[in-house]
Design a protein around this nucleic acid. Structure first.
Lengths: 229, 229, 229, 229
DNA sequence: CATGAATGAGGTTTCATTCAT
DNA sequence: AATGAATGAAACCTCATTCAT
């Protein structure tokens, strides 16, 4: 897999910080509330980068402020303190992901096609991207931020597991999947994808991993090898 | 799986600090060198606990010293600074694991039996234990300690991958494994085990995971379902 | 010579910290930039006192902060660390001295008169004052702060030597000085003044030295004894 | 002046540390007391080097011990603590210098010859040598070690001044010196020599100083220029 | 609202001194 | 007498948080 340009984790709507009102136009829709939201978004974005790069404890608010282009004090207008900033942050960033998850594509075609489409999405949107790093961040800081781990479990993991389980059961019912017990452990379905995420962060340098190919092999294992396509 | 009593990560030989000479015996092998080794071991043990509990940056040397029962300055007799302490530490703790890995049980019986035995070991020795936490620690701090990630890759990951690949190829040759492409991605074989490790740290509270059962299902997927045992 | 009241080494312009706005006037020019400059000046002043009293290594930043009336952290807003504080400090304090040196009085009268005027200045401004102590500080710490020694040589010593040499050559040309080789070693001209500086710091207690009289005798040696004035 | 090999500041009698008793001879005069004296001498020598190189506060006992080839604890068998070590040290090293001073060569020949001989000695034995550095060390640390300054004044400075004064008065009586007031300030006679000592430590790198030539010029100034030699 | 200078608690690290061996 | 591992006070420096402007 080739290195993609780093994608922002923020929904594009809030990433308008750089846009300066052209001379002449009267800062039209940019009332105070909007400006504030932009600032907050800039802080969130900057903080995410820093937290991912250094971890919670080693990240300096000074650096976040500098990267966000605001003064240090401004951060405290939006967040109570460093801890709650981290917690709110993760929530803010995860929400759109959840939205995606729940808006699954319409179930047309085989279960394998569905799963494969989902894996493709995951490859493009998570593995090797900033969002993948976020997953690693949660693994890293989870134990010290139970509220983050809780939130992540509730909003992402439990829903994801449930969705996978539904798919697996559908696959079993349709005869696409033979291993009936798989429905008890949807984790097995996503495990290689998670490993790929971690691998990219830690070992890509030593041994690049073709995540796409690996996921295909894994699906072959579950659905049986595909006939000539 | 129920929570096991926390196991020490230190080889038992060096964990004699607590042992008070029984009345009557004359301070047996406790020469200076031994005492120093004991102290170092105590520091390593304490540091590991603290690093696992709080991460590198948030761990205080004060707490390590207190837990190890030594003065703060004593740590600096054994380690240059906090960073190299962390790095040496991980090495020290990993080495016995590597020793285990290389001393694989003699290849008797089917490949599945071998893999199952190995999985059993892993369950007992890693998942849900301090050693499992260590894996999560490496995932968490790896990007900020490339030397640690490098070491871990070289000593554990690459060897483990190689060993798994050999087993898989054997399984394919013997007809136990049908999916031939699996040999290209031994990661798939271990992925659920890794997920189990992480799950225990982060989500066990919300949804306990029967790792043993999950691994069995995963092996069924690879080797085909077992007939009545 | 009697002990003079300790003179500040700071140009008076920046020493307004203590000055409380007289009742009635409205906090006049005290904008943020000014306040910052005042604080920095206070730190420089305090640091100089402490360094002179204890030397570089034995001086505690805590004491400097206390004396300057700022918090410890404030020092680090103005200086990178203790070492560069010391180096910048010496520069800051020396600069006005250099300015003085280069703005020598207009060459009226005999060379002897010129030199004598200069010696008088030196007596009043350096010997037995904080500035004299600074010279001793540089002698003391120079070998460990080559950059300080370099700066001092470049800005003070080499210029001073050059100026003295010019005066000596003038004196020789006019027939006021007979010893022609003196131009090769202007150090001889200033040596007793330097000795006086050191003497005041170290031995004044045991044997007070009338620096003024000594310098006069030394000039008699060089210019010939003065006739009745 | 060319760089001389570093000379030990210790009287040779006590510098026998390196001498190991040849096999066969029965460690003859090397009884306990002698060994102790050797160790002490080694400590003094090592400490002097370190103090000169780093100053009192920045010198580590660890380094002294290492350089002296003894354990850190051993230092405390000979000296109460770091401060008194420094004080005793300076005394120990200065004593032989004083002995020299008081054992002035027999007063043959002219006063100028005497003074010149003395200057020659000073050049060889002090300027640019470890002993010169010691003078700078005393200037540097004197204010924080009044007892050292006192001792130095009493044993070296006051005696030196007295001796110089005697010579000057003899010179005046014999008509070799015309400036009668010089006897009031023998400091003038030695000032250039002191300046040379300091110059070598601080500025030799930037502008080497021919101390011998400078001292000759200075004596010409005092005694009148020498006729053809 | 926004700023960023100022704070000071708290962290890492050093090193003079002690003391059991 | 000599050692050097151990101590812990004290130093330097960082950085989350506050608040006057």
């Amino acid at each position: 897999m080739t290195k993609k340009p780093v994608k922002s984790v923020m929904p594009s709507a809030v990433r308008t910080k750089a846009r300066a009102p052209a001379a002449g136009e009267a800062a039209p829709a940019s009332n105070r509330a909007t400006r504030a939201a932009e600032r907050r978004a800039a802080i969130v974005e900057a903080a995410m980068e820093e937290f991912i790069a250094r971890g919670f404890a080693a990240t300096r608010l000074d650096d976040i402020a500098k990267r966000a282009g605001v003064a240090k004090g401004t951060i405290y207008l939006h967040f109570k303190d460093k801890e709650s900033m981290f917690e709110e942050l993760v929530r803010t960033v995860i929400v759109p992901v959840v939205a995606r998850l729940t808006a699954l594509p319409p179930p047309t075609g085989s279960v394998r096609d569905l799963v494969e489409a989902f894996a493709g999405d995951f490859l493009k949107e998570v593995i090797g991207t900033r969002r993948g790093d976020l997953v690693r961040l949660i693994v890293a800081e989870g134990p010290r931020f139970p509220s983050v781990a809780d939130f992540y479990y509730r909003e992402v993991v439990s829903r994801g597991i449930a969705a996978m389980r539904a798919l697996i059961e559908l696959g079993i019912a349709r005869g696409e999947i033979r291993e009936k017990n798989l429905a008890r452990y949807p984790q097995i379905l996503v495990a290689p994808a998670m490993i790929a995420v971690i691998w990219q962060s830690l070992f890509a340098r030593h041994a690049p991993l073709d995540a796409q190919d690996m996921l295909r092999v894994h699906l072959d294992l579950i659905f049986g090898e595909r006939r000539a396509t």
